Structures are given as C-alpha cells and as structure tokens.
Computed example of a mutant assay.
Amino acid sequence: MTAHADRHAKTAVPIHPLLASRHSTRAFAPDVDLDDAQVTALFEAARWAPSAGNTQPWRFLLAKRDTGEFKRVLECLNPGNRDWASHASALLVAIRTDANARGPLSHAAYDLGQAMAHLTFQAAAEGLTVRQMGGFDAAALAAEFDLAAPLVPTTVAAIGVAGDPASLHESVAGPDRTERARTAIADLLIQP
C-alpha cells in the first residue's frame, strides 16, 4: 500500500463521512498552528458530551507546539511517540476526574472517552486530525504538571493537520502505510 492510499473505512453500510474518513495518522504538517476558534470548538464539543449525572469528569491540558508546556508533555511520551508527535500542532492531555464532592465517579473513564470522541469528530469537521496514545508516563506527567488525585492523566492526543505519511521515518510509519482493518461486526456481538 502506498503512502497516499485511500484511508476511507470500508464499511458494511454507509456511515457518516466524518466517521468513515477518520483515521489516526502519525504524520502531521509541521508548519500549521491551531487557531483560537478551532481550539474553542474542540473544547465545546467535548464539553457537550454526555456524562453520568452530568458530572463531566474530564479536564484537559492543551500544550501548543513551540511552547515550554509542549516540550514538557513531549518528554513524558514514550520515545517512539516523541518521534512523530513532535510535529503535531498541539498535544492534549486528557485527564480523568475519578471523584467529586459526592464521592467516586465509577463511569469517569467511559465519560472521558465520550468527551474525546466528540472532540475527535469536531476536529475532523475543522479539517484537523487527532491521534490518541497510551504510550506515555502518567506518573511523570502528573508530577510535571502538579496533577494530584482525583485527577488522572488518561491519554495524550496529538492534534493538527494531517501531513504526508511518506515523510514518516520507517520505524513509525507502519499504520499509515497499511490497509485499515477492524474486527468484523459479527465478532463484536455477544449472542445471548
């Protein structure tokens, strides 16, 4: 498969084009910055995601490229992620809030996932791409930014305009140069 292959999902039935065209590239245009309106739209989309009891158990730390905060987040990523994430327009730390004044929030991880999904598709509508990653040191990130319980860094997302996958070093290019695949619907369903 070539670097410029069609990344549109092959679906059993048509789904919304934003969903079908979304993919997590590691290639970012290194010279594009996010503007304030785009950032606000991303956070508005996340803000209006559903959450159990309207608790909204998510917080975000946005670090734009060429800032000290960006470098601090980048240093907490696994080395392989640092190689490509350094070209993103911003790194977003998605932070789960595991409790509030009423006690533990058992659905916090699920709710944060919904907020990130909303943010991801707003990004697609803005012409941006989002690649979320679990390859980072959560304890180092929490210490770096003084995040104490109940705040838990849960994922880091690279955000920006998709770049040319051909520009990626071979060591990180695999997913961008292979055909997209997903588990079949029949294999996802548990039959009663």
Score class of each variant (00 low, 15 high):
93 V>I: 14
115 A>Q: 12
139 A>C: 09
40 T>R: 15
6 D>P: 07
98 D>A: 13
171 S>D: 13
90 A>Q: 13
41 A>Q: 06
123 A>F: 03
175 P>I: 01
143 A>I: 05
138 A>S: 09
56 Q>H: 12
47 R>F: 06
141 L>D: 04
122 Q>M: 04
114 Q>I: 06
105 L>S: 06
166 A>P: 04
159 I>V: 10
122 Q>G: 03
21 S>K: 10
66 D>A: 15
126 E>Y: 05
72 R>M: 14
2 T>V: 09
8 H>I: 13
54 N>M: 12
59 R>D: 06
161 V>E: 09
45 A>D: 04
43 F>E: 02
52 A>F: 04
33 D>V: 14
40 T>S: 12
63 A>M: 09
76 C>L: 03
174 G>V: 01
79 P>Q: 13
137 D>H: 10
168 L>P: 01
4 H>D: 10
172 V>D: 00
138 A>Q: 01
143 A>T: 15
52 A>K: 04
39 V>C: 09
53 G>L: 04
189 L>P: 11
31 D>L: 08
133 M>S: 13
99 A>D: 04
82 R>S: 07
9 A>H: 06
183 T>D: 02
142 A>W: 10
84 W>E: 02
89 S>Q: 03
36 D>K: 13
166 A>W: 05
173 A>L: 04
100 N>Q: 14
51 S>T: 08
44 E>K: 15
114 Q>L: 11
175 P>W: 00
136 F>L: 06
64 K>P: 07
102 R>E: 07
54 N>L: 13
19 L>N: 00
163 G>P: 00
158 A>D: 06
49 A>N: 03
77 L>C: 06
102 R>F: 08
139 A>M: 07
55 T>P: 05
60 F>W: 07
65 R>W: 09
133 M>R: 05
72 R>G: 15
185 I>G: 02
116 M>N: 06
161 V>W: 10
23 H>Q: 03
132 Q>K: 07
4 H>K: 08
191 Q>L: 15
184 A>T: 14
148 A>D: 12
69 E>M: 15
41 A>K: 02
122 Q>K: 04
171 S>Q: 12
71 K>E: 14
160 G>Q: 02
8 H>T: 15
13 V>A: 13
87 H>G: 12
186 A>C: 08
12 A>H: 08
56 Q>A: 13
192 P>Y: 11
182 R>C: 08
121 F>W: 09
142 A>N: 10
121 F>E: 02
51 S>V: 07
79 P>K: 15
106 S>C: 09
23 H>K: 06
52 A>Y: 05
35 D>F: 11
47 R>I: 02
115 A>D: 03
59 R>V: 11
113 G>F: 05
188 L>E: 07
163 G>C: 11
42 L>R: 04
22 R>E: 00
48 W>T: 03
57 P>K: 12
85 A>W: 05
122 Q>S: 06
181 A>P: 05
163 G>I: 02
2 T>R: 08
61 L>W: 07
125 A>M: 01
31 D>V: 07
55 T>V: 12
58 W>M: 06
2 T>Q: 10
120 T>Q: 00
146 D>V: 14
43 F>N: 03
